[in-house]
Amino acid sequence: MISDSKIKFDNPTIEMSSLPQLEDVDFQKLEKDYLWLRVTFISILFLIVACSSLIIGVSSNLDWWQPLIIVTVIFSLIYMVEWKGFKIKGYAIRQYDVSFKSGLLFFSMTSVPFNRVQHTEVSQSPLARLFDLGEVKVFTAGGASSDITISGLKVEEAHRLKDHITKLSSKYA
């Protein structure tokens, strides 16, 4: 196992390969409803853009369906990215840290150790209320892009998760 590691320090107090690895099995999928929430959101956008493209199509000297075709193609791509991307989204709560990953085209995975959590928050958008979904925001002192937002949780679950993270991080405060 030791030879697996590409990194070897001079004074190894620990073996790299014995370190806890953040692996795919650690991650939990988001609620399926979250996908429907996103689809609803995109559909509303689609409706608005399609209507305005129809108006443009009719009022200009193009055929009325031409702008609509372009808009539909773009949006079907967006739907596809959302669909495929949903499988990638996930969060992991381990003993000492919380992680979130997402992004089909631009994958990113962020981990915040509990001893660096500044505070946590549950929030819910108006649309999410319809689906009974909420999100947990984990703030650090490292600025906005280092914070984690775990979206796509049932509201009770979000509150439970927030309490859990708060409890674990308050040990260090």
């Binding site: 089909l104 085209l105 631009f106 994958f107 990113s108 995975m109 962020t110 981990s111 915040v112 150790p113 660096r116 650090t140 002192a141 490292g142 600025g143 892009s145 280092s146 984690i148």
Partner: peptide, 27 residues
């Protein structure tokens, strides 16, 4: 404060990634 790994589609094909390090004084 936290660590992030970022990889876009092009990087995925080549099996490479960015590593972001966040501190309280910038990243």
């Amino acid at each position: 404060q936290s660590v992030a790994l970022r990889q876009n589609v092009f990087q995925k094909r080549r099996n490479i990634a960015h590593l972001d390090f966040y501190t309280a004084a910038g990243s």
